[in-house]
Nucleic acid binder design. Structure first.
Length: 263
DNA sequence: AGTCACCTGATT
DNA sequence: AATCAGGTGACT
């Protein structure tokens, strides 16, 4: 999926399509894609929120739909849904004819219906929003002290901070000059304070780039001008020191880093 | 913490 | 044919 910046750009775009007409029909091609979609019928979307990488469509009556785009999902509002389009996985048709469509080539994206009271437990294990006041250097330091994970796994885990994925975790560690395999608990408070700051910097810059993404209704477009330093650049020169970027596997995923800058 | 599972498409 | 992909939850 899109990581936090791309999800946020989807949310901002959805908000621009308000006011919303009543949801009058819905559909999905497989049972696993969505749960309880029909319970949204007759309601309107009152607000669109984001929690970590989750999109929340708050409905009249207090319930909400939780949408997770996973790796390749996209959420679009279009004049009408084209069910011949192979990436369409689920849709909500509005009374004015428009449709909210989950497009996802890999079909990993999920939608679920929840009552308002379920929100707390649903996100109980999700860490603070990176731009919230709750996400302080002290919070990151305390979380790091509690884990045995390598720092890159720790950042992707969503419990210390919500919204980082494979790309921006690697990019943040590059800018903080921290080796991705370093145990999080062994990092100094000073290093973690730097990491805290670069997480915000990286996400903010990515968010600006991501505002032009997701124009492609068939899926998602890559953020256009985010200056990727190491991700996907195995063998290419580090932009800071020109050493070759290295790729290692962590938790079954690729991690990219500069072996000279990140000790 | 690593591995698999969920899915499909692009690339080697 | 095999490997990889911006995620995450359920295993071991």
């Amino acid at each position: 999926m899109p990581e936090l910046p791309e999800v946020e750009s989807v949310v901002l775009r959805l908000r621009q399509t308000a006011p919303w007409a009543k949801i009058v029909a819905c559909g999905q091609f497989r049972s696993t894609t969505a749960r309880g979609l029909k319970r949204a019928l007759g309601h309107t979307v009152d607000a669109v929120d984001r929690r970590g990488k989750n999109i929340l469509l708050r409905l009249s009556g207090g319930a909400f739909l939780r949408i997770h785009l996973k790796m390749t999902g996209g959420l679009n509002v279009i004049p009408g849904v084209n069910l011949r389009q192979s990436t369409v996985r689920a849709w909500l048709t509005l009374e004015d004819g428009r449709a909210i469509v989950l497009n996802d080539p890999r079909a990993l994206g999920r939608i679920s219906f929840h009552h308002a009271r379920e929100e707390r437990s649903l996100f109980a294990r999700l860490g603070p929003e990176p731009f919230s006041e709750a996400f302080t250097p002290e919070h990151l330091i305390a979380a790091a002290r509690r884990t045995a994970k390598p720092v890159k796994i720790f950042l992707m885990d969503q419990r210390a901070v919500a919204g980082l994925g494979n790309i921006y975790a690697a990019e943040a560690l590059f800018h903080a000059r921290i080796h991705p395999a370093a145990p999080a608990r062994q990092l100094s408070a000073k290093k973690l304070a730097v990491l805290h700051r670069v997480i915000r910097d990286v996400l903010e810059l990515a968010l600006r780039s991501a505002s032009v993404a997701y124009e492609d209704p068939g899926g998602f477009a890559e953020a256009e001008d985010f200056p990727v330093a190491v991700y996907g650049r195995e063998g290419e020169p580090c932009p800071r020191c020109a050493a070759r970027v290295r790729r290692i596997a962590q938790g079954g995923r690729s991690t990219y880093y500069c072996p000279k800058c990140q000790k």
